[in-house]
Design a protein around this nucleic acid. Sequence first.
DNA 1: ATCAGCATGTAAGGCGTTACATGATTCA
DNA 2: TGAATCATGTAACGCCTTACATGCTGAT
Lengths: 181, 181
Amino acid sequence: MGKDRKIDMVILGLLSHEDLTGYDIKKQIDEAIGFFWKGSFGSIYPALSDMEKNGFIKKLPDKNSSGREKIKYRITKQGKEVLADWLKDEQASNDLKYETLLKLYFGGAEKKEVSIHNIELFEKQIKSDLQILKFYQSNLEKVLDNKEHVHYYLTVTFGIDTYEAYLKWCSKAKKLLNEKC
Amino acid sequence: MGKDRKIDMVILGLLSHEDLTGYDIKKQIDEAIGFFWKGSFGSIYPALSDMEKNGFIKKLPDKNSSGREKIKYRITKQGKEVLADWLKDEQASNDLKYETLLKLYFGGAEKKEVSIHNIELFEKQIKSDLQILKFYQSNLEKVLDNKEHVHYYLTVTFGIDTYEAYLKWCSKAKKLLNEKC
DNA sequence: ATCAGCATGTAAGGCGTTACATGATTCA
DNA sequence: TGAATCATGTAACGCCTTACATGCTGAT
């Protein structure tokens, strides 16, 4: 297939756990993996129809006969193989784009107050996101006997650990800017 | 102008420090900010010619009369304003795409050894990158009397602090997978 | 009745990568 | 003399976002 769109893997991964609609998938991306991955409807729906054509997923018959359309998808055996191949593939690209760091790197061109303010904006965002992650973590802690939950727990923990490192750095950085500039 | 390509800001930021060719810019992106930003020739050269048309940068006359073409660019007053406006703009998007975390999140579908192996690959990469960052840091530590160097130092420190948090998390994560799965 | 949220999809366009094409220079 | 690096640029293509278009449902 060659094509290795990451959004495909995200969708297959989510569907390997339960049947979902495109709308559900969007919600789960935003909520569960939003701190390290993004996805929009404009990428999800085309990916769903491509993967259905390829036989990686299939449409479930719409049970509720109301006028409202709602298409649930289920992963197929072939789809599970694609997911497994990707999981076992050693290649993994971790692409970061920190505009905050970019502004800090080039911040020498402006007064230190500008950089300090940018750090404070970042700090505020991280503090708020950290609360959400801690909430998820405390819920997951209760159900660590489930293999899948252990995996979810670990990614949330990654977020918490790195966010806490960010916050420590923010304090240090502001201090240094005040002392040295 | 409306258009707010980030690569433009990267280039303006680098040029605000010294005159550079497209090739120089690529090298500086890879070396100095590579751990949190990427850029290819295919984006740099078009951005240079667009910004020259807009008057944000200008071509310097090619001094060396050899046959080899080499175009140095210098930021203009207008370009400096664009850079300053961006630095003062409160909006900053920090987009992360951790494929490693994605694989971990969905890793429950496979044996724990797969997840552990993926964590180890990540760990190895981070350890190697951390050495480079520490080398940069030790060089910058000697020249912290310069305002620009303080800013460079802070971004490198961000990298080191977060990478060290990653490594601690890697140990914890492997342990938990072995215990619980 | 109205509004938020559920639900699916398309269209236009931006941004960026990879691969290609070309050639000079430096150093072993 | 051959390889690595310097140096600029284009072409094709892929992925994704934003905005648009449409309509239902449930709660207040």
